[in-house]
Simulated assay, not measured.
Amino acid sequence: MRPLVADIDLDALRHNYQLACRCAPQSRTVAVIKADGYGHGALACAKALESQAPAFAVACIEEALTLREGGITQPVILLEGIFSADELPLVDTHGFWITVHSQWQVDALLAASPKKPIPVWLKVDSGMHRLGFAIDEAAAIWRQLSAAPSVASLHLMSHFASADSLDDGYFKQQMTRLQGLASELSAPLCLANSPATLAWPVAHGDWNRPGIMLYGSDPLEEANDITQQLQPVMTLRSAIIALRELEEGEPVGYSGRWRAPRRSRIAVVACGYGDGYDRHARDGTPVLVNGQRCAIAGKVSMDMLTVDVTDVPDVAIGSEVVLWGRASNGEVLSVDEVARYCDTISYTLLTGVLPRAPRRYYGRFA
């Protein structure tokens, strides 16, 4: 069978979740597993964390229903809320918690008659300017929801635009606005995403909601002592399927973008953009071959990519190739480093791995 596989280390996932909890011991930590667990498999990740996580968060009701159908009983928060009022009976039946960010959602909730009041997270736009009520209108909405029989517990939430940045000016502006509103309403807070969980204790609220850090990616512009403890959860692993000897000056791949600077040995690897590997990977993008760093040479194809292995003497057909993650010898290639060579971020690489690359789960909770 084709050797490409995405190995998912569920012990590493649990380690990263516990690290998030240790960052904010006074907070409860929601595990964000939207987008199919950032490409890792939402249900498998939820099963691995269900003994520890008090709640999970997803983007939409389809993702939440997948968890319920798989036996997950914890609260599941819909981070974008409902997309139409006719979702509310499902919210009621399955005990989901919802985010409310727009007036039409408020109106739908106030008009509903659920069997049980629904826990609500009121989203405030503190500066991201994406979803949420303006700061100056949030208090009135809060009081309206507080008096509604269809609403159970209320939390105040927002999202930071620049918690990952070394320049903390805008983050501090958002925090100041949120602290003032929370004080006025005596509201419990949920503010901290992964970067705020890792770097900004001032943002730790009643709940935190880390996402990308759970999967071993460092979201900060500059690593700190905590991010260096993150462990990679996904290893995208394949093998060499062909080897070629090239003379100096010979081209490789479409358009001949890469030309051999010397007599070179080129390995063909079973992985391409048809599997979700980024076609924008530049020449020099690192991979691990038998645990040794090598570099992509030439454009990524749909089913294959090519690697310069001239300096790896023991390479052979079947040799292990790690596109990111942990090699068999323990060497790690960070998905964050690969993403920089592709002019993107780890989120797009991890969520972009297609079903054609089967997930293989291991660890104590596989």
Results as ranks from 00 to 15, higher is better:
Trp97Ile: 00
Ala163Asp: 01
Gly95Ile: 05
Ser158Glu: 08
Trp97Ser: 10
Ala192Glu: 04
Pro114Val: 09
Asp107Lys: 06
Asn193Glu: 14
His101Trp: 13
His94Gly: 00
Trp142Cys: 10
Ala108Ile: 09
Ala139Lys: 12
Gly95Val: 07
Ser146His: 15
Gly95Leu: 05
Asp136Ser: 07
Arg143Ser: 11
Ser158Met: 07
Pro117Phe: 03
Ala140Met: 06
Gly169His: 10
Trp97Tyr: 10
Pro188Ile: 08
Pro114Asp: 04
Val100Ala: 03
Leu110Thr: 11
Met128Lys: 08
Pro149Lys: 14
Val106Thr: 13
Thr93Met: 07
Asp164Lys: 06
Leu109Ala: 05
Gly127Glu: 05
Asn193Tyr: 00
His159Ile: 04
Asp136Val: 07
Arg143Trp: 12
Val124His: 04
Gln173Arg: 10
Asn193His: 04
Trp97Lys: 06
Cys190Pro: 02
Ala152Asn: 13
Phe160Ile: 01
Ala192Gly: 05
Asp167Lys: 01
Met175Lys: 03
Asp168Pro: 05
Ala108Val: 08
Ser153His: 15
Met128Ser: 03
Asp168Arg: 15
Val120Ala: 02
Leu166Gln: 14
Leu156Lys: 09
Gln173Tyr: 05
Asn193Ser: 14
Cys190Gly: 02
Gln103Gly: 09
Asp168Glu: 13
Gln179Pro: 02
His94Ser: 00
Ile98Glu: 07
Lys116Trp: 02
Arg143Glu: 15
Asp136Lys: 07
Ser150Phe: 13
Lys115Asp: 12
Ser113Trp: 00
Leu131Ala: 06
Ala111Glu: 10
Gln144Asp: 04
Leu145Met: 07
Trp121Ala: 08
